[in-house]
């Protein structure tokens, strides 16, 4: 039996409860409070860059250089893709889509039967859209994935627990669990190159300039002009992800 007075016990329990509640509130609200204390993203964005990507469907020839360059530059494991090319062949009866090995080695010729039915055909490069309202960031249980003020959606390789929730949440299928590192992985818009004043690898090697990358805050950049001309589309607009990958000449059949 305790020798403390009932009052002392009650005070102790009250303090314990209050302390636990405070700790709980702190744990829950730590991130937004710290973010607010550091200052809003909007101000740093205005002072700095606001990157976007543009894909011009009419220019892509499906050579696969971008897929190869990305794979080499970012040491992407075989069979996994930070970017890929899809080939669409549209016929009156339906649409034929394929992406052999992500289009890494180009495409074999379409067979004659399909070619004779085709009314339209084109290539669609795909990559992470670095969405301004990314569902992948929303669902990460430990906050390992985040959006930088300049618009890069990145994964903290030291913090990711590899739960794959972000892979499930991405409407565009651009994420995967890196087979060698066992963490979430995806296109980073070659952050390591852009931060050194270079362009992403895929943009650098594209022979037809189907891929473009730039700063929306730079009025002379191609991407800023594309944005302003307002002739662009995004993939799955109904998902409301505020995708920052703008497509020019995107056919209706593309998902």
């Amino acid at each position: 039996m305790t020798t403390q007075t009932p009052n002392a016990r009650r005070v102790f329990l009250q303090r314990l409860l209050a302390g636990s509640a405070a700790a709980g509130v702190f744990m829950v609200y730590r991130q937004p409070v710290m973010a607010a204390l550091k200052g809003a993203n909007e101000t740093t964005q205005a002072a700095g860059h606001d990157y976007a990507f543009v894909v011009d469907i009419s220019r892509c020839i499906g050579c696969g250089q971008c897929v190869r360059a990305c794979s080499i530059e970012n040491e992407v494991p075989e069979g996994q893709y930070r970017t890929w090319i899809e080939r669409y062949v549209v016929t009156p009866d339906g649409v034929h889509v394929d992406s052999p090995q992500g289009g890494m080695h180009g495409f074999d010729e379409v067979d004659e039967a399909l070619a004779s039915e085709a009314i339209n055909s084109f290539f669609v490069p795909k990559l992470c859209n670095h969405c301004a309202e990314a569902p992948c960031i929303q669902v990460c249980p430990v906050g390992a994935t985040f959006r930088s003020p300049e618009g890069f959606v990145l994964v903290d390789p030291e913090h990711c627990i590899g739960c794959s929730y972000c892979v499930q949440a991405c409407p565009y299928g651009v994420r995967f669990i890196n087979r060698e590192k066992h963490i979430a992985d995806k296109c980073t818009w070659c952050y390591h190159r852009v931060s050194q004043g270079k362009l992403p690898a895929c943009v650098t090697v594209c022979p037809t300039q189907a891929r473009m990358f730039g700063d929306l805050n730079d009025p002379d950049s191609q991407v800023a002009r594309v944005l302003q001309e307002d002739n662009w589309d995004v993939l799955k607009p109904e998902a409301h992800t505020a995708s920052m990958c703008l497509y020019l000449g995107l056919p209706r059949v593309v998902v």
Binding site: D93, G173, R175, I177, V255
Partner: peptide, 17 residues
Amino acid sequence: NESLVNFFFPNEAEIHW
């Protein structure tokens, strides 16, 4: 959706959950 062949995104070959 009027697909003529079975197609899935390259990263979807592996089921994660």
